[in-house]
Amino acid sequence: MTLIDRQNHRKLYVQLYDIMKKKIEDKEWPFGFRIPIEEEICNVFEVSRATVRSAILELVRQGYLTRQQGRGTFVAKKVISDKLTMFTTFGELMLEEGIDYSTDVLAQTIMMPVDDLADKLNISEDKHVIYIKRLRKADYKPILIQETYIPFHICPPLLEEDVQKNSLFELLEKKHGINLTEVRNYFDVTYLNADEGMLLDLSESAPALVLTQRFFSGDTQIMYMRSVNGTDKYKFFIELKRKAL
């Protein structure tokens, strides 16, 4: 049985999430199976109830588990596994739409991971990170704030590259030979803070859509990106195709 590794820099609930997810994917916990109660999971993995609840909540959110009032928590009927598989750069998107675009580089520096950034990049907290913040404009109007974090050891020369004129994807793949093979996208709704509102020429607390992305090359995470846009200026379009039965 896989156990929690307390020497691992990853948070306990993330490790527990991975363990429970694997049980579902391997059908050790088949469809309809009622998972053990929280207290039992706490005892088996020697973690707190808060850790167990966080892992279960994420599994429910991802569609692996479902809760039934008064009965317990069960493995859901079907796990949704379709992913967005195409990478489109901001420039490619604007060209496709026939829109003039530009980029302002607001920051391009090196930093230490703060808050939960180390977890988001799957690195230890003593690793340096390249931080790039850009303001994207379409038809001369600001529409998107994009913050990118890349572990420094992945591509040190990126710190000196021209990220105003060049696509990060193209720099990584064509110049530095780092092929991006997978992206995981997460959408959320929030409200702009004062700085974001000023940059996007919108009022503070205006509604905004946030897209966070984790990019991988094989099993190695390469980059974490957070994009914020005002809902009146930018929309995301996702096309999903159903597999033939």
Rank of each mutant, 00 (worst) to 15 (best):
M112Y: 07
N43H: 03
N43C: 06
F237E: 03
I41T: 06
E38D: 11
K22Y: 08
Y140P: 00
G98L: 00
R34S: 08
E97T: 03
M223D: 04
N229M: 10
E239F: 13
Q7A: 11
D26L: 09
I222G: 09
D119M: 11
D116F: 08
L192W: 02
S102T: 10
G70S: 01
K83S: 11
S124L: 01
R67D: 05
T181F: 04
Q146P: 00
G98A: 02
E46P: 05
I19H: 09
V79W: 05
N8V: 01
A76W: 11
S167H: 11
L144A: 07
Y17S: 04
F31M: 09
G218A: 06
A55Y: 07
R71W: 14
R226N: 10
E239N: 13
D26C: 04
M111T: 14
G230T: 01
Y17M: 06
Q68H: 03
S81K: 15
N179M: 12
K78Q: 14
K137L: 12
M225N: 14
V52G: 06
G32L: 03
C42Y: 01
S217M: 05
T190A: 07
L159Y: 05
K235D: 12
L12H: 07
K141D: 03
K83L: 12
V79Q: 12
I110F: 01
R214M: 00
Q69D: 04
K78H: 15
T2L: 08
P30H: 02
A138L: 02
M111K: 11
F187H: 12
L211K: 11
Q68F: 02
L106I: 13
I110M: 08
H176Y: 15
I56W: 06
V114R: 10
D116E: 11
D5T: 02
Q164E: 15
L12A: 12
E40K: 10
L93Y: 00
G218P: 11
M20T: 03
K78I: 04
T212I: 09
L158M: 12
I145T: 06
L95Q: 15
S48W: 05
I99N: 09
G218R: 02
M112I: 07
T89G: 06
V189Y: 05
E170S: 12
Y101E: 01
V183Y: 00
A194D: 15
E28L: 07
L3S: 14
S217G: 10
K165V: 08
Y234C: 05
K11W: 10
L171K: 11
Y101F: 13
R53W: 00
P142D: 04
K127M: 08
I99S: 08
Y186W: 10
L93C: 11
G72M: 03
I19S: 00
D119Y: 09
P157I: 03
D126G: 07
K11G: 00
K21H: 02
Q164G: 13
P151M: 07
M94P: 02
